[in-house]
Every structure is written in C-alpha cells, then in structure tokens.
C-alpha cells in the first residue's frame, strides 16, 4: 500500500461515515415533522387538566382507588390532588392530606394568602419515559397507543422505576410487591369508556382523549388553549398537559 492509496481509502471512509452521521439525524428529524409521535398510531391517548376548574373535592382520587384496587392507606396513589398556597410574604406551601381523598379544610390565615389553587397530578405517560428506560427486565413498557404500563407478572420489584420518575407517579404495591402506576384505566379506555378519574370529575377539570384524531375535544383543547407540561426541562415529553399552571407548580 503506497501513500496515495492509503490517503484515498481513508478519505473515502471518512466521507462515508460523515454521510451516515448527517443522514440519520436528518431522516429522524424529517420523520418527526412529517409524522409527530402523537400522530403515529390510532388511537393515541392523551390527557389534559384545566387547573382553574379543579375544586379539590377528591372524587377522582376515590374513584381511582375504587376502580383499580389501590390500597386505601395514604402514600399509595395513582392520582392525587395537591393544594398550593402562595402567601403574600412569598412563602409557597403545598399540602395533600391523604392525597386529597377526604377533601380539603379551608387554609389557615386566609388574610395572608395571595393565591391558592388545586393541582391534580397523575402519570403523564411520557413520550420519553424514564421509568420505562430504567426497567432492567422489560416490565415497564409503552403500548402502541401510548400508555405506559407495568407487567405485574414480570416486575421483579427492584423499585428503580419509582426512583426514576421525576413526577413521583409510581409507588410500590404493598400486597403485590410490584411497582404500580396509573394505567389511564387501560381496561376502561379500550372498551370505549373514560378513565375513572375523568368519569367522576364533577367540574370537567380532567379531560381524556385521542391525540391522533384532529377532531377530538382533547386535540382542540391542546390547539386552542395555552398549555404547559410539568418539568419540561427534563425532556420527558408528557402527554399530560395543564392549562393555567402557576410557575410555582412542580
């Protein structure tokens, strides 16, 4: 091999690799814009919360526990409601007695309160879900219709996913000894019913629907309202969006 031959081969190899390095991200970007993740499958489930409509009655928390046999003790929740109290001093406090299951007493020292509101929380069924990525056995997964689920027979109970969720949406089921989380009531939505929390919300603060349908109420809501997700900097891309979120909400 002479020098000329070596240089030519090396240049060709570099060109080939450079071409590949540019082509793959370009193709991925093109695919993303032509066919965004939420348009890929029909149906593709999503969820929205209108914070200004939540009255903190806790019917959703009760309905979720009833529908999904979630243990009744505090600390086991697939969905819960938080109350934010913003004082005039700038102090922010959050409480969620029993997840909001029993409702909320009026906040103390009302004269010092600048603002107070309720924020329902549940799994965002993230597009890039950290819980699914860290599962060592493939027991956490995303279905083709976009719902993040746990395989109870395959989960080894290592709790890694519980640590990984930045939203605190998973808990360790004390009887089954597996990780447990919101399924968007997968057994209901696949039969054409609403999730139990949406079904039981008296004010319509919770909304569930099909993101792949451009005419669905949820798609319209996402297109017409100013919406936000929680912790967008984490890059998890939750399919749960909020309208009217205060900047203090985490």
């Amino acid at each position: 091999m002479n020098r000329r031959h070596f240089l030519r081969t090396a240049a060709l190899a570099v060109a080939a690799f450079a071409g590949r390095a540019v082509a793959a991200p370009l193709a991925a970007a093109e695919k993303f814009f032509k066919e965004p993740p939420w348009r890929r499958k029909k149906p593709y489930w999503g969820y929205a919360v209108d914070v200004a409509k939540c009255i903190g009655c806790g019917r959703c928390v009760d309905a979720c526990k009833t529908e999904n046999d979630v243990p009744r003790e505090p600390f086991y929740f697939r969905t819960w409601v938080e109350r934010y109290v913003l004082r005039r001093t700038g102090e922010v406090s959050v409480d969620s007695p029993n997840g909001g299951l029993d409702g909320y007493p009026a906040p103390r020292e009302p004269e010092s309160i600048a603002q107070s509101f309720f924020v329902p929380k549940l799994c965002g069924h993230c597009e890039n879900s950290p819980c699914e990525q860290v599962c060592p056995v493939g027991a956490s997964f995303k279905t083709v219709d976009g719902v993040v689920l746990v395989d109870r027979k395959y989960c080894i109970g290592c709790r890694y996913c519980i640590q990984a969720c930045p939203y605190g949406c998973r808990y360790f089921h004390p009887e089954l000894q597996v990780a447990d989380k919101c399924t968007l009531c997968y057994h209901r939505i696949t039969k054409g019913l609403q999730p139990a929390c949406v079904e039981n919300c008296p004010t319509g603060a919770r909304m569930f629907g099909d993101l792949s349908d451009p005419e669905s109420a949820l798609t319209k809501f996402r297109e017409t309202e100013r919406i936000q997700t929680l912790k967008p900097h984490m890059g998890t891309e939750p399919k749960l969006v909020y309208k009217g979120l205060h900047k203090e909400v985490r």
Binding site: I55, R83, V85, A106, F117, F118
Partner: peptide, 10 residues
Amino acid sequence: RCHEKNLSRP
C-alpha cells in the same frame, strides 16, 4: 365536599 366555602377553590 364540593360547595363548602374554601379560599383554594375557584
């Protein structure tokens, strides 16, 4: 549960 006066409600 829903209608008691509470500053935190809308």
